[in-house]
Design a binder for these strands. Structure first.
Lengths: 219, 219
DNA sequence: AAATTTATTTAGACAAATCTAAAAATTGCT
DNA sequence: AGCAATTTTTAGATTTGTCTAAATAAATTT
């Protein structure tokens, strides 16, 4: 099955919205896609006929198994392109989304699977969101702020929130980049600063402001 | 200005068609785009209003300066993606076109210019067609068959026509690939075989059949 | 529980891109 | 030049995705 750009955008929007409430409403979708409620209703009828979602008038929508598959496929494409833009073309984190929004609708399966391979099967996009693999499975490991890590737990840096040159400077100095494995050893309640160990290097100190901007996954 | 996918396809088709005759006709365009003449006329009216081409009923079409710019931009995107697919994602020459046909319509200027840089500012796509640079200029160096090279001239391999495993085998054996610099030293009239020198390696012999499939540009 | 507000759907219209069928212009032929 | 064949255009319809305005259903308030 092949879907139009519009259909894919609606499916993606519903997928994201139902993460929270378990379902999505007309107004929510209209708002998410900057369109009008009437347009949403029209599209929902179409997607229901195509069996991509469950929908009874006035009851909100829930993606079907098939719809979920489509959503994960679009999200896979989107996040792989984001990773490509960031990693290979040096886009900053705030620039990748808009372009990926277009690239995600190029639906050649071979293209995406080869791209995935070329990028080394990345598990997270530049925002730290998981990238579904070729079967639609993704790492459920939650990405949390370094600040929220428990003491004596190991983690891998998966993304950095802020993207200023200042933060890059301090990260470079402390030898921290995406993929760095580290362990939180101690937290000082006075200023919420952390002591962190990276491999066999001596322990380093990370301020609260910095820790809040470093996102990690459990190792 | 931003143009629809349809508009871009029509402009690209006219650009290609007017390479030959200097202008394009309704039927030619309809044929090229697998659409009907009536649809072409409709679109031509639209593109005329947008000043992308010159058109008087029954007189055929010619791109305006502005239309030419748009065409070169689309072609630049198409060929850069083809190069990417071939070079980075290991697509074969006959697979790249279809996917590039979709990718070419993602029109972020930053994306394309960064991609160009990432690829090392390639001058030719995998088919040997020149890639317009950021200003729409492209190497006019004609790509010619190695067979047609004059004696004692230097050349760079820009593409291989045939794409069978057999030709790849012999090329690999003789150490020839895209980008290889070589010099034609001698031609034997008997069988039209060539003697070619690659760098400081000993001279090798290339048959007429092989030379016809190797396309080069003057160095 | 009735009234009001909010959310959703329906009805009808519109723009883009396409099509078929018919009309008009151009070209080619004798 | 006149007629036939071809090419191109026009007219009117269709599909997709959108919109506004009005109608209806659901939720909230009093």
């Amino acid at each position: 099955m092949n879907f139009s750009i519009s259909e894919e955008n609606y499916i993606k929007a519903i997928f994201h919205l139902q993460q929270q409430d378990g379902f999505a409403t007309t107004n929510e979708v209209a708002n998410e896609l900057s369109t009008k409620p009437a347009s949403v209703t029209d599209m929902m009828k179409k997607l229901k006929v195509k069996k991509l979602l469950h929908y009874e008038p006035y009851q909100g929508f829930r993606l079907s198994t098939e719809g979920n598959k489509v959503a994960l496929d679009v999200i896979r494409r989107h996040r792989l392109w984001e990773y490509f833009l960031s990693e290979k073309l040096n886009f900053t984190w705030d620039e990748v989304h808009e372009v990926a929004e277009d690239l995600e609708h190029v639906s050649s399966k071979k293209l995406i699977d080869r791209l995935d391979e070329f990028l080394g099967f990345p598990k997270f996009d530049p925002h730290g969101d998981p990238i579904p693999d070729i079967n639609g499975n993704f790492t459920v490991t939650r990405v949390i702020s370094l600040q929220d890590m428990a003491i004596n737990t190991k983690a891998v840096v998966s993304n950095i929130k802020d993207q200023s040159t200042e933060i890059l400077e301090v990260l470079q100095h402390k030898n921290i980049c995406i993929g760095t494995r580290l362990e939180v050893k101690k937290r000082f309640g006075f200023d919420n600063s952390l002591e962190v160990k990276i491999g066999r290097q001596p322990v380093i100190t990370i301020s609260e402001q910095l820790a809040k901007n470093i996102f990690v996954t459990h190792d």
